[in-house]
Amino acid sequence: MWTRLANPGHFMRWSGALLPWLAGLSAAGVALGLYLSWFVAPPDYQQGETVRIMFIHVPAAWLGVFFYGSMALSAIGTLVWRHPLADVAQRAAAPIGAAFTLICLVTGSLWGKPMWGTYWVWDARLTSMLILFLIYCGIMALWRTMEDPNRAARAVAILTLVGAINLPIIKFSVNWWSTLHQPASILRMGGSTIDPSMLYPLLTMIGAATLTGLSLHLYTMRTEILRRRVRTLTIREAERLDAGAVGLAQARADAVPLGQAL
């Protein structure tokens, strides 16, 4: 069943049918999540109203990591099965993941200004997210430099997997580095101490953001498939014109008598 669903033609059909539902569901989810996080969740006793930034910061962080994970899975699909849909999924995921990572960084620093007194703290989590964003930038740059989509997909897949192996190491080393330089523990959000009155709005926002990200991913995957079709047709058209021109030149050369041609 999976192979049938993953066939690009079938994919276009079922994703086209699914997308309006998914988009509607994510819009409803975002509306519900926004309502819960603005009007139901109480202000935090420590952070005050600023805690409302967390309702977008945490889902954005989750999606930034989630899309890297899905890119790594698609990269395995590209390298092992050489599946075109895996290439497409990989390519479509990169800008979305980068955008959510950027949102996470900016909201984190906007939260940091009132809480920490400065826009940027070299905190372990923020720093890891910054490095993740840099890796996303590298991956998108590599996509742009390679003309042939199949070759680009394989190159990016290798880079994505090397990055996936490196990310835990980066996380570990940044944690180590930040404890080395900032022994004082900073105000931490999350963990198991979070109150249910905040947990449910947060979970709703995470779910809604995931649905939004998935709908965007499906939509851009469809665009990528269309782009590949356009590319194939353009090449075929160019070859046809080329062959036509060669044929004409041939005909003209044949028309000239042999003696004159020499």
Partner: peptide, 13 residues
Amino acid sequence: GPHGGYILGSYAF
């Protein structure tokens, strides 16, 4: 509260 600008700013971004 006093930090409304940051909250609205992050949502707007």
